[in-house]
């Protein structure tokens, strides 16, 4: 098979005994007879930056959605940090320490940047109906803490303080991306999933984001999984790359290995050819 063994990424122990923060085995998703993801096995080494790539419609986002609980998988098993999270609810998965961003930014439009990030901390907060109504001292303290932490997180991702109280629909695309990452970070994740984070960015911005991902991993002890189209970003930042095509995993390995993998080249070439043919019609 062309599926190469997972190389030791930055994690310390090599080979099969790699310490995986997330592992998926035989995960499948079928939409009305159409197999969108076909028994994919997948492991993310703890502390690594890992990418999933593939042509359009390869099932990358569907796979993402199964990891985060937005879709129920039809077969297979997903484990996160030793806990079985297969078909678990998204909020529970978030609480366990998985956070994500979306391909087409999904901020809460009428909320300010700050409020968006405060919602990101929902899973780490405790006050419920009683606390919300009667606002006892511990609820007040929690609110203050959450607000401070949200400000801090927004500063960390580089949002200008002047923009923190602006309604997020009114902010620029780049700022919205920042807020979305801040919102995900606010839930104190161990694993961060980024769905095409550089979409719509110029090369300079992409490079900055790439550097930021490394900084995140190092400073916040995060593991990062990203879906990405920009090959420069992917090849530059990833320690492991998984390639999906038509819902199947066709290759896995280091950037070098994947770059020279025949099936990968074929899959990408095939789709480009198909596009060329369509354009001629």
């Amino acid at each position: 098979m062309s599926t190469e063994p997972v190389p030791a990424a930055s994690a310390s122990d090599p080979g099969d005994a790699v310490d995986a923060i997330l592992s998926a085995t035989g995960v499948s998703k079928i939409f009305g007879g159409l197999v969108a993801v076909d028994s994919v096995d997948f492991k993310i080494p703890r502390g690594a930056i890992v990418s999933i790539i593939g042509p359009n419609g390869a099932g990358k986002t569907t796979f993402f959605n199964m990891l985060t609980g937005l879709y129920k998988s039809d077969r297979g098993r997903v484990e996160f940090d030793g806990v079985n999270i297969t078909n678990e609810r998204p909020d529970i998965i978030t609480k366990l320490g998985v956070a994500r961003t979306f391909q087409n930014i999904r901020l809460f439009g009428t909320m300010s940047a700050l409020e968006n990030v405060m919602v990101g901390q929902h899973a780490r907060m405790r006050s419920g109906l009683f606390g919300s109504i009667f606002r006892p001292p511990w609820t007040r303290r929690e609110e203050v803490d959450v607000r401070e932490k949200a400000e801090e997180t927004l500063k960390y991702v580089g949002l200008r303080p002047a923009l923190m109280h602006q309604m997020s629909v009114n902010l620029s695309y780049g700022d919205q991306r920042r807020i979305e990452i801040a919102r995900a970070l606010a839930s104190e994740p161990k694993l961060l999933l980024l769905d095409e984070p550089t979409a719509g960015m110029n090369p300079e911005e992409s490079a900055r984001l790439t550097a930021f991902m490394r900084k995140l991993r190092d400073e916040r002890a995060l593991t990062i999984l990203l879906i990405e189209h920009d090959m420069k970003v992917v090849m530059g930042v990833s320690e492991q790359i998984t390639v999906l095509d038509h819902g199947e995993k066709i290759a896995e390995g280091s950037p070098q290995e994947v770059r020279h993998n025949e099936r990968v080249v074929e899959a990408y070439l095939g789709s480009r050819e198909a596009r060329a043919v369509q354009a001629e019609d």
């Binding site: 985060t68 609980g69 937005l70 609810r89 998204p90 909020d91 978030t94 609480k95 956070a99 994500r100 979306f102 999904r106 901020l107 809460f108 439009g109 009428t110 909320m111 409020e115 405060m118 919602v119 990101g120 929902h122 899973a123 780490r124 907060m125 006050s127 419920g128 109906l129 606390g131 919300s132 109504i133 606002r135 609820t139 929690e142 609110e143 959450v146 919102r183 995900a184 839930s187």
Partner: peptide, 21 residues
């Protein structure tokens, strides 16, 4: 309140809300 924010979040985007916990 925390609950009030969660309601706005659900109202505007259930998927994002659920993904934020």
């Amino acid at each position: 309140s925390r609950l009030g924010r969660a309601w706005i979040a659900i109202r505007e985007d259930e998927i994002a809300a659920a993904s934020m916990g």
